[in-house]
Design a protein around this nucleic acid. Structure first.
Lengths: 135, 135
DNA sequence: CCGCATCCTACTTGATACTG
DNA sequence: CAGTATCAAGTAGGATGCGG
């Protein structure tokens, strides 16, 4: 009875989930569009890095987020994690071939960003000014 | 006194924000990497769409999220919002030149995703299997 | 030195109801 | 039809302390 509307929404959500699950782009976006993943991949572009180096290099990422991000990238086969069981332990991260194949795409995105960021910022200012005027 | 921890958190956040503010790529990623923005831009690729059309087409996005996403895109100058004051009101959204210039990049990302999604999924399975074995 | 586990906060998202 | 406001809930992010 009163379930009709609720039901329809639930159905829509299921359809949506099914759609999302089938969309490779969104799955990839979930990884590369992640708050830190892009930075990490970029930081690894030059070569292998140790955990601590990345932490310094990316300043702002908590140790937790860094580890979490690295593990996600490792899981997706974009980076390898090499543990050297010395004392103390040493851990190196390096891009895999798959990870490196992503670099050009990231570069393209970066290029677009750097090229158009001004337009975006200008548009943003104009928009905000308009908003302020209306308020 | 009890402000110390709070204070440090604020400071750290400021440093982080300053870093982020200087990175055009991250600013752009914040928009295009958004959960819905990509879908919306794609849905608008063919031409102008009404609010309701997008809602149908993207099924799964709540009306709130759709509006929120569209406003963000409008703010960044990627889409235009045209209101026709008829009864009832009609609103059309359309990609701007800037928005269309983003399409190729999105396509590149999509292409990479479709090409490598299998590798990613394979890596993911292998990783999870390894995890399960360890647990 | 690395990373895991815990706790806690804040932001994001979604459902619902109401206005123009 | 389009959009806004409010409230509840889930999730991501961060601080801290412990273990390998």
């Amino acid at each position: 009875m009163t379930r009709t509307a609720e039901q329809r929404r639930t159905d829509a959500k299921v359809v949506y989930d099914a759609y999302m699950a089938l969309c490779p782009t969104r799955q990839v976006m979930a990884t590369v569009g992640d708050k830190w993943a892009g930075l990490v991949v970029n930081a690894l572009a030059d070569g292998p890095r140790r955990h601590g180096e990345l932490r310094t290099r990316i300043a702002g990422a908590s140790q937790k987020m860094l580890t979490q991000t690295l593990r996600a990238l490792e899981r997706d086969g974009l980076v390898t994690r090499t543990v050297t069981p010395s004392v103390p332990v040493r851990v190196d991260y390096e891009l895999t071939a798959l990870g490196r194949s992503l670099l050009p795409v990231l570069q393209a995105l970066k290029a677009w960003s750097e090229t158009h960021i001004e337009d975006v910022l200008t548009a943003r200012e104009a928009y905000d000014a308009r908003e302020a005027a209306n308020a």
